[in-house]
Amino acid sequence: MAPLHIMTAALQVSLRDRTVVLIAGLFMALVLISAYLGWSATTTVHEVYLKVAEAYATKGEIAPSNPVSNTSPLELLRNMTTYVALIGALSGMVLGNKITSVDRKSGVYPLMASRPIGAASIAIGKILAIIVSISSLLGFAALINVGTFWVLPNISLNADEWSRLAQFYAASNLYVIAFGFLGALFAVTSRSETAALMIPVTIWLTVTFIIPQLTANVLPMAALNPLKSMTAAPTGAFFAFTGAALTPFSIAEAYRALSAILLGFAPSGFQFNSLITPMQTLFVVNGVLMSGVVLAYLGLNASRSDYND
């Protein structure tokens, strides 16, 4: 039961933190804007098509097919991959940091550690809090998208598309949770509160922009673009080595590749250049980081848990 109590308290405190509320609100606002833009663009195209079809009909000609029906409706979500990779990952890091740093900052950690519970219980409670908070955030985004698909004209998702939508959100969840664990890992291990936030941000920038350059020669700005980044990795000894060595940990690439495949905007013949699948990469990185959080708590000195700054 102790991990559940720790999770509840961590969520209670985090929800009252202005930074957390602000960044979660920003992510949700972006999801809403994305949904509105998707709805607006699709509705406009559909209305224009209806007028064109009517004009064709008055001339006695057969109108071409509706462009709204010609593309996968899931493609409308491709901007979500950028939002998740940027603001989603940042939200995850902030949540992970706040959920774990609050005990050290407030001085409550020694009180928790003097209770008849093990450090592993505290770690599990914090991990649950990270998973629940991030899943709630992504769950809200998923609900908005489902609602958008419901109200869009001339669009209905078949069973396979609903399944791929669910898989996309599962992948997004894993991606953001990994950054939550990253934020938590450094919030527990760092002596300084500033370093606790700056180190994960630096790793996030490296994972998003630098590693894709080393593994597949993806230009930094192209890494933000869900279409341009979907290019085949160049050949050569350098990329053969860096690709094999780094791709299993290149979580941003794995997430982008998986999203493109699931949402149907990957170029034809596109393949993820790794020994393991993108979903496996997400699981591996999450597993490694989660174990890191547990080990960090086991090694945390409760009598010296205050930050230096």
């Binding site: 308290a9 609050v102 407030s106």
Partner: peptide, 16 residues
């Protein structure tokens, strides 16, 4: 925890 009431803080530590 500054953001929580005395009761909420005590409840948490009592549960632990």
């Amino acid at each position: 925890y500054d953001a929580m009431t005395s009761q909420e803080n005590l409840r948490f530590l009592a549960q632990l």
